[in-house]
Design a protein around this nucleic acid. Sequence first.
DNA 1: TATGCGTGGCT
DNA 2: TAGCCAAGCAT
Length: 312
Amino acid sequence: MTAPTLPPHSGTTAPDAPGTPLAETLHSLVINWFDDNARDLPWRRPDAGAWGVMVSEFMLQQTPVSRVLPVYEQWLKRWPRPADLAKEAPGEAVRAWGRLGYPRRALRLHGAAVAITERHGGDVPTEHAQLLALPGIGEYTAAAVASFAYGQRHAVLDTNVRRVLARAVTGVQYPPNATTAAERRLARTLLPEDAPTAARWAAASMELGALVCTAKNEACHRCPIAEHCAWRLAGKPEHDGPPRRGQTYAGTDRQVRGKLLAVLRKAHAPVPQAVLDRVWHEPVQRARALDGLVADGLVEPLPGGMYRLPLT
DNA sequence: TATGCGTGGCT
DNA sequence: TAGCCAAGCAT
């Protein structure tokens, strides 16, 4: 007879196996907290539908909720179903994306709407693998849509959940820079057995990271699992190890691309090169940024040195 | 696995 | 003030 085994994981504090008291305690504490503290967000309303959930997930990739809210409302009003967006020129998606940032997401969301219309009869697919095959959908977003929209059982491992698990279970201040196999293993280990509870846990643990267990100024006094938190119990040791990679922005191609695209979003007719030239003084970087936008399909070059958002 | 990719609010 | 940070993805 063999003892029950747990997958190995990093960190100093072992979680209990699934179904053991600690895991279940965490589930109920966090879910009960969520019942009382969940934000009333439009994509969580019952009428949002899978398309609403999917749109919100695209927009929320690296962009705060407060900035997503107004764009989300406009988007769903204009394109209430995937087929509505699929009929549009991709440039219209880029324009409607506004200043959410990372406009390639708008292009991919448009591409996903086209694929849904062509391959799935206009309905957001229910299977994780089908979702993963859509442009702009990676491991996280596939799991999130399957869980939030369809109530399925998946480990939904975003930056919030990673931080909550790093602290509560592993006992460190921050998760690693890149998601590790150990983190995925841990998240799967902690997943409630039944699908509805797993889906609730996914949303609840994410919300806990967003509202309480934040990157800076964490509010342990409001945390439902503070008394179980390995990091807090260890005296909240400061992060050690390699510095967490920051994003530089000023003076980068990204900034130039942003300025170029801002001009094209505002324009409703082709824009001459000379107008684009005014956004950045340095010609080499300016040309590289514009070429990059064209290569990414975010900008369409026309004969005679004219440019516009892509029609196809 | 490391890097590039927007934008704006906050400390 | 100059980073730091915000529900990642693609390559």
